[in-house]
Design a protein around this nucleic acid. Structure first.
Lengths: 195, 195
DNA sequence: GTCTATATACCGATAGAC
DNA sequence: GTCTATCGGTATATAGAC
């Protein structure tokens, strides 16, 4: 597939399939998954809806292509947790890995954070463990036998790391190193009880 | 179904209009605003879609009836900020008022947090300042002339307070007093640079 | 206030020509 | 790979009887 002139907008080196995914990320992030029609995605790419279906079998398949890499990273981390003993050091390591993983998926961050219901609705059947993963992460973070305050602090710490997914909006020019350092420190301080 | 004097039919002390709103909150929170049809809302109440339109002029009007109280509280706080000088004490007071306000709207918390894009899309024209309010709050919290780290810490602190809106999921049985105390302390610790 | 019935529009998805 | 054309379904919203 080479670059084309006229109404075609395919850039050399980037396949139509990738262009569709990128346009969909942009659209889904601003308008939401359900609020965006495949006709709008196709228009943004410069093709028709029928052509889009040549590359993706369904709207959900397109969403999966967008979400799956981040989802796989998150699952890989969560499934390790059972074998990691809960200690101040391991907490720091797990949080570091998590915030690092989130930063590497920043482009789809807003989509994940602000359109969660639609995504869960669309992918809930395909990934039944989707909801449980966040819960397991919070639970491990709180530690065994955690009381209500500790559980709440763990949930709040996860919220802090969620700020990484929206850092393109809040601090667009900040380096990943700064974001990782600051959010890790912030999350750790949330986990500590009042001084 | 006992009719009462004046306008409005009352079922067990609750008007049909209120019943519609409550059913919509429940449905929108679990399925999302756009994924929920007015037919589903009407079915949950036990009326038809056409009857629902007698009480609410449109789907967006129904959403407004749900969201507006929280939105008004938030705006009232944000519009005071210009006159509040930035000090450790005023930061604590503003955060306290904000988390208190959020806790009082916990029933629509999940809807606001997990379906933001759909809500902004539906109400964006009606409330143009919706997006800006969060930004102004973050900016005030960071203080005048804030650098990137401080700005990021302010955004993360706001994320922590957002945990209040999902506390029904994370710590269903916790008291409002506990949640308010813990999240306020957590948010304040996020704002402080590394020790 | 609630109903039945319907207008109108757009959606996801498919068929088949080129 | 991309197109035109269309199917079947469902959505919001309305009209008018009771």
């Amino acid at each position: 597939m080479a670059a084309r002139a006229g109404s075609g907008t395919v850039v050399a080196g980037r396949s139509t399939k990738d262009a569709i995914r990128d346009a969909a990320v942009q659209l889904f992030s601003t308008k939401g998954f359900e609020q965006s029609s495949l006709r709008e995605v196709a228009d943004a790419v410069g093709i028709t809806k029928a052509s889009l279906y040549y590359h993706y079998a369904s709207k959900v398949d397109l969403l999966i292509a967008i979400i799956e890499p981040m989802f796989d990273d998150h699952r890989a981390l969560v499934e390790k947790l059972d074998e990691i003993p809960h200690s101040p050091q391991s907490v720091r390591e797990v949080l570091t890995e998590h915030v690092h993983s989130m930063l590497s998926h920043r482009t789809i961050g807003v989509l994940c954070m602000r359109d969660t219901v639609a995504i869960v609705n669309a992918l809930g059947n395909r990934y039944p463990d989707m909801m449980e993963m966040h819960r397991r992460m919070c639970q491990w973070l709180a530690g065994p036998g955690a009381d209500e305050e500790t559980t709440l602090r763990a949930a709040a710490a996860m919220q802090v790391l969620g700020a990484a997914l929206m850092s393109k909006e809040s601090v667009p020019d900040a380096s990943e190193e700064l974001i990782e350092r600051v959010l890790l420190d912030a999350a750790l301080s949330v986990l500590e009880p009042a001084r």
